[in-house]
Each structure stands twice: as structure tokens, then as C-alpha cells.
Design a protein around this nucleic acid. Structure first.
Lengths: 212, 212
DNA sequence: GGTTACATACCGGCTGGTCGGTATTGACGC
DNA sequence: GCGTCAATACCGACCAGCCGGTATGTAACC
């Protein structure tokens, strides 16, 4: 099962740098201009390679999209599993997950913005593959919310669905407004976001009349 | 000033239905396939008109994008001003704004998803025009948050910026997961979202140690 | 020497946009 | 109320250009 890195193959060995440069150029251009507005000619020019090289490593343009997001999602899922395994307290786990999600989203904001915009351009199979993993992420987060509500958090009127979408909506919109040259550090924003959600879950639900 | 509906012009009068059908078809197709992936030919076919008609009413394809979002933004801004004028209590005003934002976003989710994806395809001038108005919306919301914090809400550790982006991130991501055939009514979701944000602002900030 | 890693020239198809033409209308003189 | 004129509303064939993808060739490596 694992990667077959040890098998010695015939012929000229592939150059990993070429492949990486292509994906890097595609990521930049897709983020700047959008997927459809970016031509493969532009990609190969920025990558400093030729069309032949691109179509040697990738069967079609849309494969670039898949590769771009696959790595980030895998990392975030690994983080999720690690946190869920290490932290038995659901409130603390939820806070840690939010923190990780915010920080990794900011770090890879180009991947996030490209995938958020262009995920529909993927083939159905690949879309479903990513969707399935992303769905698992959602389910774990909602489970954490439910568990935290069962184990002490007071605000049981907040549905895990809406709360989770508050979290995911916040993160996916992060690339739109986060500025790297701004005054706030990613972990700072991550901490505040986590505290905000936990604060909302802590409060008891008060109906209409007494608004403040 | 005002609309010059009374001026009688020469020549055959325009057909508002044609214009509306073109925009409607463009909205549908842009939402389904994306802006770049939708050809002008597809638009005119679905609208049941010809290319000549489209380019008679619109100078370029990107004008369709502008028209699609302009109407929604104007309505949301009008709602915002009305709420801000009628409701002196900032907490109640904030809750009302969130409610309106959620409901109108769900009602016009196709416009929201198209604009969120394709706003960069607009010309710089038009992008700035929409951006300016949208910025005003943000500023009012943040002002309401600040004012609510000054007038009694306890959680002053939540920055208006992060709170506002929690709200806007939630609404802009609504089209991704809201299902019209689902069990929840839009106003139901809107109420819960408002209550969630207000609950978070109500809670006093508790540092690290006592997580639940 | 067989296999892989690229390079380059090339292609059919479709795109956004144009442009000359025609049909339809209101304004206006009478 | 009616013909005339000019302005507008649309029609649809047409275009240059670029697009994603391919076919063929050559050089590098095991």
C-alpha cells in the first residue's frame, strides 16, 4: 500500500520541481484571475515550462484544481483527527479545531479562495471525493458541538448546524478580508474566533424581550 | 432628478420583458455554470432572444453581472438604513439587521453565489462602485456592534471586525448549504443566527482555564 | 535500447463582439 | 387621421482570436 518510492523505473526520472512549479503557477494564476480566465499557456509561461511538460504530468487542466486543494484538505483532516484523539473534552477540542482551521486557512488562503470559487469545475467524481472528506470534517465538528452541549454548555438552543456554518462561513470568507500586512496575527484571530463561538455556546438562551 | 418616465421618445419603445428575460437567464446560467463557463449564446437561447437583442440592451457581457447584483445590494442597503433609523437600541438593531441579511440572502441566493464567485470579473469602476456600498454596510454593522458593547453588552473582547465577519461569512456561505426543501424556514435560521451572535456578545470574556 | 521526460508545431471549435439590414413605433406637419 | 420621417428595437450572419488538447519528435536516463 504506501508510496512506491523505492521501485526503480526505466527511463529518465521525473523532475519533481517541474511538477511543483506547474502547480504553484496554477495556484497563483487561478487565485488572481480565476480558473476559466486562466489559460494553460499562461500557466506554463509562469511556471517556466512548456505545454508538453504540463500535459505530461497532468491529463487535463482540471487536474490542477484537484491537486491544489487535495493537499490542504488532507492536512486539515489529519489535524482534526489528531485533536479529536488527544483532547477528550469536547469544548476544548472544538476550540482547538477552530484555531487550527483559522490558522491553516489563513496560511493557505489562495488554495481556499480558489477551491471556494472553482470547485464546481471539477469532474463529478473528484468533486465527490473532496466533498466526502469535507463532509467528514463537518460531521466531526457538529459532533463536538453536540457533545459540548450535552456536557455542560448552557446554550442548547444553538443548533450544531447553524453553529458549524457560522464557523465554516467565517473561515471560508477569511481570504476576502484578512490582510497579511494588517495588525493582527493569524493565531490572534483564531483565538478570538474560538472564544466567540464558545462564548455563544456558554450563554443561556434568553427569549426575545430582554435583548441586551 | 428622479426617473424620466414621462419623456416621450421617438421610435419603437423598448420591451422591458426582453431585458428582464436576459438578466433572468444570465442569473440562472451564471449560478449553475459560472460566469466564464457561460457563453453569450447560451444566455440568449435560454432567454429566447437573439444576440442582437442582448447587445442592444447591454454593451458587454460583464454588464449582466453588474445588473444582477446591483438590485439586491440596493435593497439590503435600504433595509439597513430603515432599521438603523427605526430602532434606537443597537442590540435590537443588530439583531434585526442580521435577520434581514439572512432572509434576503436566502431569497436571493443565486445572486449572492454569483457575485461571491465572479465579482472579480467586473470592470474596476463597477467593482469599486459595489465595493463602496458594501463597505458602507459593513461599517454600519460594526458601528452597531461597538455601540451595543458600549451600552451594556458584556463581551468587549470580541472585536467588531471578527464579529462582523462571522456574520457576513455565515450569510455568504448560506447558499452553499441552505436547502429550500429542508426542514427549516429562512426566518427560523435568521432568528437563530441573530440569537447566536447576541449570545456571544452577552457573555463575559473568560480566559483560557475554565473552558466550559 | 527501451522507456520516460519533455519540446514544439499544430488543430478544430468556440468565444465575445460587430455590423449591415429590417421591422416597428411615435412625433409632427397638415 | 393620415402619410412621412427619423429614431429605436431587434435580427442573424460573420469574424478574428484564443482556447484546451494532441501528435510527433528528440534528448536524457536506467
Amino acid at each position: 500500500m504506501g508510496t512506491d518510492a523505492a521501485v526503480s523505473r526505466r527511463g529518465r526520472p521525473p523532475n519533481p520541481q517541474v511538477r511543483a512549479r506547474i502547480i504553484g503557477a496554477a495556484l497563483e494564476l487561478f487565485a488572481e484571475q480565476g480558473y476559466d480566465a486562466t489559460s494553460v499557456s499562461q500557466v506554463v509561461v509562469r511556471a517556466g515550462v512548456t505545454k508538453g511538460a504540463l500535459y505530461h504530468y497532468f491529463a487535463a487542466k482540471q487536474d490542477l484544481l484537484y491537486e491544489i486543494y487535495r493537499g490542504l484538505l488532507d492536512q486539515q483532516l489529519a489535524d482534526l483527527d489528531r485533536i479529536a484523539a488527544e483532547e477528550p473534552d469536547p469544548s476544548r477540542a472544538l476550540r482547538a479545531v477552530i484555531h487550527d482551521l483559522v490558522v491553516t486557512t489563513i496560511r493557505h488562503r489562495r488554495e481556499v479562495v480558489v477551491f471556494g470559487r472553482e470547485s464546481t469545475r471539477l469532474s463529478p467524481e473528484r468533486w465527490q471525493a473532496l466533498q466526502r472528506d469535507w463532509r467528514r470534517y463537518q460531521d466531526v465538528v457538529r459532533m463536538l458541538i453536540r457533545e459540548a452541549q450535552r456536557r455542560g454548555l448552557a446554550n442548547t438552543a444553538a443548533s450544531p448546524e447553524v453553529v458549524s456554518w457560522m464557523i465554516f462561513g467565517f473561515t471560508t470568507s477569511l481570504p476576502n478580508w484578512y490582510r497579511a500586512d494588517g495588525p493582527r496575527e493569524p493565531s490572534d484571530i483564531a483565538e478570538e474566533a474560538g472564544e466567540f463561538v464558545l462564548a455563544a455556546l456558554r450563554t443561556t438562551h434568553t427569549e426575545g424581550i430582554r435583548t441586551p
